[in-house]
Simulated scan of single mutants.
Amino acid sequence: MSAQQPRVLVVEDEPAQQEILSYNLEAEGFAVSRASTGDEALLLVEEVGPDIVLLDWMLPGVSGIEVCRRLRMRSESRAIPIIMMSAKSEEVDRVRGLETGADDYVVKPYSVVELMARVRSQLRRTRPATVGERLEFEDIVLDAETHKVTRDGEAVKLGPTEFRLLSTFMEKPGRVWSREQLLDRVWGRDIYVDTRTVDVHIGRLRKALKLQGGDDPIRTVRGAGYALR
């Protein structure tokens, strides 16, 4: 699974629906994980750390509503966007799904094209760089679509890893990222990299940004990690 690809967890117990969703998401460039039960979904959220969850309401065992409720109770999954999918079309059901913590509610049968648009909309809010958005922080501009970075109007030359690091920082300025969190977000969970490697690439990113003048925008938080200002 590429660290660059947005990670989507599809939770759907109907094999045909699961296959259609996964096929279309992968065609759009997403890295897809699949679950057929609520229990499996809860485990995969911990293992994969998805950027978004497509969650069917009617699941064997633990229901989609209960999965949603539990994910919202956990600090590590509280902010993950959840799109609830259900054949329940009554207003009371929509309200229940949203009040339980879903960010969006899609009624079956749904348009796959519309669902893909809703996925991109949620990711634009939480992971803008992964859907080609332009990010700005003070005098730094990152164009995720063209993979170009400028500082005070001057081009900044970055390697792929430094670009992903900067994207991560610019998506959430001020947030402190631990080395382990950066390894997961930038390198991916399937690759073993020593945490000291993070320090090396942070150093390279700092050097590239400081070549264009100005203060170092990345601060080291002793005992915690790194943050953008």
Rank of each mutant, 00 (worst) to 15 (best):
M1P: 10
S2L: 13
S2F: 15
A3Y: 01
V8M: 03
L9G: 05
V11Y: 07
I20T: 11
L21G: 00
L21I: 03
S22H: 04
S22D: 08
Y23D: 06
E26S: 15
A27D: 13
A27H: 12
G29W: 05
S33Y: 07
A35W: 05
T37L: 01
G38L: 04
E40S: 04
L44F: 02
V45A: 02
E47R: 08
E47F: 05
E47W: 06
E47K: 05
V48D: 07
I52S: 09
I52Y: 09
L55C: 05
W57A: 09
L59R: 01
L59N: 00
L59Q: 00
P60Y: 07
S63N: 06
I65M: 11
R70E: 01
R72W: 14
R72I: 10
S75C: 08
S77L: 09
S77G: 02
I80D: 02
P81E: 11
I82P: 01
I83C: 10
S86D: 11
S86T: 15
A87E: 03
E91S: 11
V95R: 14
G97Y: 13
L98H: 00
T100S: 05
D103E: 12
D103W: 05
V106R: 06
Y110R: 02
A117L: 13
V119P: 13
V119M: 09
Q122D: 04
R124D: 03
R124T: 10
R124E: 08
P128Q: 12
V131K: 06
G132Q: 13
E133T: 15
E136P: 11
E136A: 15
F137Y: 08
F137K: 02
E138N: 15
E138F: 14
D143S: 15
A144N: 10
T146Q: 14
H147Y: 14
H147S: 13
K148P: 01
D152L: 15
G153C: 13
G153E: 12
E154F: 08
E154A: 12
V156M: 15
V156R: 06
L158F: 15
G159H: 14
E162C: 14
E162D: 09
F163I: 11
R164A: 04
L166T: 07
T168C: 06
T168M: 07
P173I: 10
G174I: 05
G174E: 05
V176L: 12
S178V: 03
L183D: 01
D184H: 01
D184M: 03
W187E: 03
I191V: 12
T195Y: 03
T195I: 03
R196M: 06
H201A: 02
H201C: 00
A208D: 00
L211F: 00
L211D: 02
L211V: 00
Q212M: 07
Q212A: 12
D216P: 07
P217C: 08
I218W: 00
R219N: 13
V221L: 13
V221R: 07
V221C: 11
V221T: 07
R222Y: 04
A224R: 10
Y226S: 06
A227Y: 06
A227E: 06
L228P: 09
R229K: 12
R229C: 05
